[in-house]
Design a protein around this nucleic acid. Sequence first.
RNA 1: GCCCCCAUCGUCUAGGGGACUAGGAUGUCAGCCUUUCAAGCUGAAGACAGGGGUUCGAAUCCCCUUGGGGGCGCCA
Length: 503
Amino acid sequence: MTTPARTRFAPSPTGYLHIGGARTAIFAWLYARHTGGQFILRIEDTDRKRFVPDALDKIIEGLRWLKLDWDEGPDVGGPHGPYIQSQRLAKYQEAADRLVEQGHAYRCYCTPEELAEMREKQQANKEKIGYDRRCRWLTPEERAAKEAEGRSWVVRLAVPLEGSVTFNDLIRGEVTFNNEELQDAVLLKADGYPTYHLAVVVDDHDMEITHVIRGEEWISSAPLHVHLYHAFGWNLPIFAHTPSILKPSGKGKISKRALNTPDGSTIPVMLHEFPELGYLPEALFNFLSGIGWSLDDHTEIYDRETAIKHFDLKDINPGPARFPAEKLEWMNGVYIRMLSIDELVQRLIPYLSRDLGVPEEELARDERLRIIAPAIQERLKKLTDAAPLVDFIFADEIDIGDPKLLVPRKTTPEQTVDILSNIIATLEQVESWDEETLERALRGLAQEMGLKAGQVFSPIRQAVTGKKVAPPLFATLVAVGRETALQRLRDALARLQAWIQSQ
RNA sequence: GCCCCCAUCGUCUAGGGGACUAGGAUGUCAGCCUUUCAAGCUGAAGACAGGGGUUCGAAUCCCCUUGGGGGCGCCA
């Protein structure tokens, strides 16, 4: 067994959590659980301008829905709290002061306007863009003058001017940057809030994080963090930069809003959208864990216990991956089919209630739903697919549409009148209303009339469900019930006759 | 523009010098099953980006090219 790891997921409430972030969270969670360590949730809310009020709730809801539990976090507490960065400001300020005192950082008095001007000039002259470190070289007198002016300031890291930094990434191996490429990044903003760079390093150290697992967009700021760890005199954690998930088109990484797939359908990208769209959390978990990582060379469907057992950060494939949307549809269907009937019904109820306008308690009591459930189970890719498959059961009246739809292929309307009459007669006399009896009776009728089974079945389907495509016929009839089914057949017959007359 | 990361079937992946005539899955196509639609079963097509090395031997190691991704904010 590996030594217990402390990993964390640190979302920022500046927006909702997308599946790329959710996948990183899954990896961090899996590794903590695999090593028997702890998983920590930390909120990085140091950007006061971009704060989105309900983002945090949505993020937490989503993580809980995925059943990622954390051992320490804003809502559960822990020995290293608080776990919300805006409540830890004093720590960052102290840390920044310390760096300034020791000469690892300095106060910069440049205004945003001055910096913008500088960048413009750099662009115009095709120079390298970046802070020119003008405040790094200020003499004590100049500094005193700026302070006396009452100018506000930020704290910047005094990055080494020469040499290079190398750090080890568990997924990618050694990564080296020349110090010349690095910026004197801002650590503490004028409003007293830390930037990401200061806050992560201070918190990860403070919270004893052993493995920093985050998206690959952070890889280019990792050298900054390494310098910060050195400046503080702290040991480096182990880094693991997760590959990003690209749009299905492969153009750019996944961002906000639903995505268009090549076949014209759309897929959601925000974690909180998945529940309402009928995806199962265990399916999404399995699916997301399989992007950039695989259990072995042949297993696709596995539960989280199995994933925990086999997971290792070093097995993550470093290459970016497109979002394989079709595979999720398939996998969600697999998970739906693995549900017991009781569980399927339970999970279906909220969706049917929402889409059909029937109260949940009523659906829970309605045995017709339980009867039809086995018949629709293998037809569902998402829980939301159920409503259009069963709506006829709960409808007061069926719109059969064009009466011609009652007429099977290779059959005339007149013959269909005959067929329907016989069906009604047969069903009126059937001794019991169960699938087996109905099938025997209706197949017998077809044979008697010298018809193919489909010629008898399809008018029934159309009359009872109003659809060309519906769940298997006998289960459908049983679910609808004898009286309703017969009534719908009689209505259909009447409409067909009326239509023939009018021709 | 500069820096960093990456590169196996359309897509997600297995592979970490000989076990590779490159495995699985999805998607596609065909057949079977069949009352519609599914599901299921069977089968087919389908990849080591290109070029140089290293080696007896390279999908696997090195270099270059190409292509993709990311970063270059008082945003995370």
